[in-house]
């Protein structure tokens, strides 16, 4: 009897969550996948008999859309610069905050988490002021030290970097507290042993702390990557994709072309292109992680 239940145990643990996900995520995703091969629009939604299957036409069209291609390029730019920055900065910050354990340092946790809980309108207003080309704080400071003003949101490349900075500022908080939680799991005995062996702070960081944070780092890098490939809110709020689509991300493209215009088939096709990209990248991350584990053993 015991054995029987032991075999069943994992299924019992996972089944409530899996059933809910199946119902409200996986089946809807499959439906959306079918929709991506149709010409569904608002008319089709009102009368299902009007929906026509169009094969892969939506997918072909997406890749022929110059703005989609541009958005793809922009997204790659965001991801390549943004993701490593988020990981390094939130880990660095977590280490700094972990340095002291008193009340002041615990207040810092809230401080660095605060961007995540600030209303996005307030964020947009304040940052729009910082980035304002004529009257903004950043350009005012540059002028004080005798430098030329920077077109923060007006130049195609600078605008992308400005949005990355903003997104970085917003993303650090959550990842920082995840790293902080992970840091508590490292047994103090390891550090004590290392100290006895005469290891310095740097050696302890690279040979104990960072390896021990492997699981948290993997989580942060996978979710950050997924999040940044779906980069949306910052360009949506700050630039609406401008100037001249130089900040349009894939997710913004899908939102604008699909949902604002009720072209559900087209939007679904765009979303599945995004989906495939994310799956491939995530699979790659899992493979790399497994390789690392093997070499460690």
């Amino acid at each position: 009897m015991t054995k029987f239940f032991n075999k069943r145990a994992p299924y019992l643990f996972v089944s409530p969550a899996i059933l809910l996900l199946l119902m409200f995520s996986i089946i809807p995703i499959l439906i959306a996948f079918v929709i991506s091969f149709t010409d569904m629009s608002l008319n089709g939604l009102a009368d299902f008999s009007l929906i026509k299957f169009v094969g892969v036409a939506n997918y072909v069209k997406v890749f022929q859309d110059p703005i989609f291609v541009k958005a793809l390029g922009n997204t790659v730019f965001y991801v390549i610069i943004g993701v490593p920055l988020v990981i390094v900065c939130s880990l660095g910050l977590a280490l700094l905050i972990n340095f002291g354990q008193n009340k002041v340092f615990s207040f810092f946790r809230l401080v660095f988490y605060s961007p995540s809980i600030t209303n996005v309108v307030a964020v947009a207003v304040v940052w729009a002021y910082l980035y304002n080309p004529q009257f903004g704080l950043f350009n005012y400071l540059l002028k004080l030290i005798g430098l030329q003003p920077v077109p923060w949101l007006q130049d195609p490349i600078v605008a992308k970097i400005s949005l990355i900075l903003l997104a970085l500022w917003r993303a650090i908080g959550v990842n920082m507290i995840i790293f902080l939680a992970a840091l508590q799991g490292i047994p103090k005995a390891y550090y004590e042993a290392a100290e006895l062996d005469g290891a310095n702070a740097r050696q302890r960081l690279f040979h104990i702390t960072i390896p021990m944070l492997k699981f948290a780092t993997f989580f942060v890098s996978v979710t950050t990557l997924i999040g940044w490939i779906q980069f949306f809110e910052e360009p949506f709020v700050m630039t609406q994709g401008g100037p001249l689509d130089s900040t349009t991300s894939l997710a913004l493209f899908i939102y604008r072309n699909g949902f604002q215009l009720s072209k559900f088939g087209y939007a679904a096709a765009g979303s599945f292109v995004l989906f495939v990209i994310i799956i491939l990248v995530t699979l790659l991350q899992f493979r790399i992680q497994r390789k690392q584990e093997e070499t460690e053993l």
């Binding site: 994992p10 995520s25 996986i26 809807p28 995703i29 997924i226 995004l274 989906f275």
Partner: peptide, 29 residues
């Protein structure tokens, strides 16, 4: 257990698609 990795990846996959795509299907369900 059997199918663990596959099942886990399916779970992760639900994070990978913009929420608006599934809004109407979920509503219809």
């Amino acid at each position: 257990f059997k199918g663990k990795n596959f099942l886990f990846f399916i779970v992760l996959a639900t994070m990978m698609i913009p929420g608006q795509v599934t809004m109407i299907p979920v509503y219809l369900i």
